[in-house]
């Protein structure tokens, strides 16, 4: 099972790499978003605004990146999956791959963001941890939503309509956590947000694991 998940991740990466326009498009998306915010803000003095803008950029990038997660698959590939793999492997593999992708893109965003708009973060390792858990949480929610939306048609608008209400609770916790990280608040205070976030990171993929087979039958 684990080797099969690895297979899925490797295949996703190969497809991504073969057709580099998607990932290049995302990079351009991030950079232009950052540059627009740089032109309009120059420097952001207020940490709360800094934080909010950062997560809004990540959120929209994530919705864009994951919308295609199930859309680009051809009929033949789906048939191949259907015959040789079980659905749980596919969804877990995709969640992990998307999580890694989002985390890397999130790191790049953070880097350029800090360079362009100033870096008020005091607890950097805490902030990176927030990006890591946050990106995997967002990935596990949006991958599943993308699967639902791809079955429903009207892909891009459905993705936002279905995704945002479900992401809201997750985002509030992430924003609390990263705000505390920016203010350099001690680890012992943050632990409650972190445990909640980690437990959601376990619960949501578990739900996807249970529910995805129902979307699979078509």
């Amino acid at each position: 099972m684990i080797s099969q998940i690895g297979l899925i991740i490797a295949k996703e990466w190969k497809l991504e790499w073969r057709n580099r326009s998607a990932i290049a498009g995302l990079m351009v998306y991030i950079l232009s978003g950052l540059y627009i915010s740089y032109l309009s803000f120059k420097k952001i003095a207020d940490p709360a605004t800094w934080n909010a803008l950062f997560w809004i950029l990540i959120l929209f990038m994530a919705v864009n990146a994951l919308a295609k997660s199930f859309m680009t698959e051809s009929r033949g590939l789906q048939l191949f999956y259907y015959t040789f793999l079980n659905p749980q492997v596919v969804i877990i593999g995709k969640i992990l791959y998307n999580g890694i992708l989002l985390f890397l893109l999130g790191l790049i965003t953070f880097l350029f963001y800090a360079v362009l708009l100033g870096n008020p973060v005091q607890g950097v390792e805490m902030f990176l941890l927030a990006i890591f858990t946050g990106c995997f949480g967002i990935s596990s929610v949006l991958t599943m939503i993308s699967a639902i939306a791809s079955r429903a048609g009207h892909q891009s608008s459905m993705m936002a309509i279905l995704g945002f209400p479900v992401l809201l609770p997750l985002l509030i916790i992430i924003i609390h956590l990263s705000k505390n990280a920016i203010d350099g608040i001690e680890f012992s205070v943050n632990i409650k947000y972190l445990t909640l976030l980690l437990s959601l990171n376990l619960i949501v993929p578990a739900l996807a694991f249970i529910l995805f087979p129902y979307l699979w039958r078509e």
């Binding site: 929610v141 599943m144 639902i148 209400p165 909640l196 949501v204 529910l211």
Partner: peptide
């Protein structure tokens, strides 16, 4: 689809 969406979103709402 709607049943999957509802069951998927419910725990997050409870949280």
């Amino acid at each position: 689809l709607s049943a999957v969406y509802l069951v998927f979103a419910f725990p997050l709402m409870m949280a």
